[in-house]
Nucleic acid binder design. Structure first.
Lengths: 112, 112
DNA sequence: GCTAGCTATATCGTTATCTGATATATCCAA
DNA sequence: TTGGATATATCAGATAACGATATAGCTAGC
């Protein structure tokens, strides 16, 4: 289990990287991140949807409703070009932060 | 400049790693992290002291007042054994998170 | 045709967190 | 004696986080 601040810091970048795999709807995203992290990362709806709405409002993703045969309609989210840029910026930021920690913590950090 | 959530997530681990260098007082810590990060990380007093107090309350650091010849007294903080453990745990958590991102983002992440 | 459970999105209201502004005080130089 | 650097500390308004709750479609079993 990751600490609360780390989970908060990782929410948006992880979300964007998931959407790079292709269009996804909220419920699916929750299952996907759980599977990818072997159950280590568990997102809840109240954490997910506000972020998706914000990303949509800022033009980082677009959303389209699609009917489903086995349940309620689904809202599919798609990364926009701006979203890809945002992801790259998150990745750059992450790299920079990692470099800083490596500087402070020594080379053993890279040995992951 | 790091994003707000990332700054929040990094505050405690960075603080502990700074204190591993030796005893430090608050004002000094602010200068030190700024210098180490080449001005990228700028902590404020209102961010710093609440955390230091919390770390002291949980036994992660101890504090002693020391007189100063060129200004007000200084409160020096020292990492306890429990603090070193906490730092190691942060480092482990960081490694795990880094591994997860590497899995999602590809090998280019390690090339920092 | 009822109900239980899964699927699916969404928001509310309380709690927690964050941080700019402010307070207090010492020292030194102009 | 005024201003700036040093030094710690807290408050109060703003922001963010999230468990609980609402709504609703679909399917299976009875």
């Amino acid at each position: 289990m990751f600490s609360k601040p780390l989970v908060a810091a990782s929410l948006e970048p992880l979300m964007l990287s998931l959407l790079r795999e292709g269009d996804m709807y909220g419920y699916q995203i929750i299952q996907r991140i759980k599977a990818l992290s072997d159950g280590q990362i568990v997102w809840t709806a109240s954490k997910l949807y506000p972020l998706l709405h914000k990303l949509e409002a800022t033009g980082v993703v677009t959303a389209v409703w699609q009917p489903s045969k086995n349940g309620p309609d689904r809202k599919y989210y798609r990364l926009t070009p701006k979203g890809r840029q945002a992801l790259q910026q998150h990745q750059r930021e992450w790299s920079d932060y990692h470099a800083l920690l490596a500087k402070l913590w020594g080379p053993d950090l890279s040995a992951t």
